[in-house]
């Protein structure tokens, strides 16, 4: 438990990262880098959870936070993202 601050002000921006929403996922998006152009980054643009990172090697899914909504797979113009059942 955190201490309460004066006026409930939270001095810690972005601290929602302490909570890993990846545990919500039932379907896991997996990128096929054979198909991915590594250029369009639609998966990055359309992620509601800031769970896709733009890197020089293309998009990187941050599974700690990905809720498995499937938007990235649905919107991928190259159909390079597959949703596979979460194993755990």
């Amino acid at each position: 438990m955190a201490k309460v601050t004066v006026g409930a002000v939270n001095p810690d921006p972005g601290s929602s990262r302490n909570y890993e929403t990846g545990s919500w996922r039932t379907l896991k998006p997996v990128i096929d880098f054979e198909k991915c152009t590594k250029k369009c980054f639609f998966c990055y643009d359309f992620c509601p959870d800031s769970a896709v990172e733009k890197t020089d090697d293309g998009p990187k899914i941050i599974y700690a936070y990905c809720k498995g909504c499937g938007i990235c797979a649905y919107e991928c113009p190259k159909e390079a993202i597959e949703l596979v059942p979460e194993e755990k």
Partner: peptide, 16 residues
């Protein structure tokens, strides 16, 4: 500017 870990529903349009 909008961090992961928020409790929006999966597929939330507002998050995007």
């Amino acid at each position: 500017m909008f961090a992961s870990g928020h409790r929006g529903c999966a597929g939330c349009g507002e998050g995007i």
